[in-house]
């Protein structure tokens, strides 16, 4: 037990035990090292302090455990419920009418893919440029005002965004469409990407920008190829987290992209998506559809989880490179 504790090899100087005590007095001890010696030296208040500290740490452990339990619970439950319906058909087939067995969510998976890709293609560059503008170009007053607006925008409930998109696009074009869904998702994605980009750009020290300017590099070049490039990992993290978020959005799509049982039939047509399909199935009274909904939930959670993990890895990589 005391193997690691410092021990004199004898000889001259103070006797062994005294020497050990002298050292113990001034050096922090390994946790399991010198109990036998230190305990005897503890005063009552020390003992009390130690127990209060132990209790505090235990309490924090409990809180942490409580906080992650739901995550584990959801995950285990969904995996349990979802696995039985997981097969090739689920990914490639269209939904079957009630009463027929089999069928899948091919329409919803393709639809989600299209909605999310379309939104990302438009929204990611838009959000990044907006973030760059906020951090590098806007005068401080304008930037503060814009930032306020964007923050307010991201706190609007998504169902309201869905209704807004319905009123703006669906009422105008007189039908549900992938475009309307994309419009609603953009309102969610752009603020997220813009704000994370802005925050990350602010981490770049001012003197890096000055170094670029002092080299005779035009400002927009400094911004894009030195500042933004330097933190691309962090920006990508924000982008992926934003995409993960819109992947799971249901409310904005219910009145906009709606649903489509027949597979993808054009951007001007109603389009299915995983969350909406899941919702439709989950509130239905049919046992087969419930199974499909659980499997859909599993696939959705899997995709979102994968995106989050990828963003983590990217961010870590960029951290390493920055040091």
């Amino acid at each position: 037990m005391d193997d690691k504790a410092p021990r004199p090899s004898g000889g001259s100087g103070p006797s062994g035990t005294t020497f050990v005590r002298m050292i113990r007095k001034q050096t922090p001890q390994p946790r399991w090292g010198g109990r036998r010696y230190t305990r005897a030296r503890l005063s009552l208040s020390d003992v009390k302090r130690r127990w209060v500290s132990r209790f505090g740490v235990f309490f924090l452990y409990c809180l942490t455990f409580l906080a992650v339990t739901p995550l584990l619970g959801i995950f285990i439950y969904i995996v349990n419920k979802g696995i039985p319906g997981l097969n090739r058909d689920f990914f490639v087939s269209l939904p079957k009418p009630v009463g027929e067995t089999g069928g899948g969510m091919g329409n919803a998976i393709v639809g989600s893919g299209i909605l999310v890709s379309l939104t990302s293609i438009i929204g990611v560059p838009w959000g990044i440029l907006l973030g760059v503008y906020l951090s590098e170009y806007a005068s401080s007053r304008l930037a503060r005002w814009l930032r306020q607006c964007i923050d307010q925008l991201s706190s609007i409930p998504s169902i309201v965004i869905g209704l807004f998109a319905y009123a703006m696009i669906v009422v105008w074009t007189k039908h549900f469409s992938a475009w309307a869904g994309t419009f609603a998702l953009l309102i969610i994605l752009v603020p997220i990407v813009a704000r994370t980009t802005e925050e990350i750009l602010k981490l770049v020290p001012q003197h890096i920008r000055e170094a670029g300017l002092a080299l005779g590099i035009p400002r927009w070049n400094v911004t894009l190829f030195i500042v933004l490039k330097g933190v691309r990992g962090g920006v990508m993290t924000g982008v992926i987290l934003g995409i993960a978020r819109i992947m799971g959005e249901t409310a904005p799509l219910i009145f906009t992209a709606f649903n489509n049982q027949y597979g993808f039939s054009g951007l001007n047509q109603p389009t299915a998506s995983l969350p909406v399909q899941l919702y439709t199935y989950a509130i239905s009274p049919f046992e087969e559809w419930h199974q499909q909904a659980w499997t859909g939930a599993l696939v959705l959670v899997g995709i979102v989880l994968a995106l989050n993990v990828i963003s983590r890895i990217l961010f870590k990589k960029s951290e390493v490179r920055r040091d």
């Binding site: 770049v204 890096i208 670029g212 005779g216 933190v231």
Partner: peptide, 20 residues
């Protein structure tokens, strides 16, 4: 921009461009 091409500058803190 043209002026700064003719007058280089070195700063107090070494500031190589990140991730280059």
């Amino acid at each position: 921009v043209g002026v700064r091409r003719k007058i280089g500058m070195v700063f107090q803190k070494p500031n190589p461009f990140p991730s280059m």
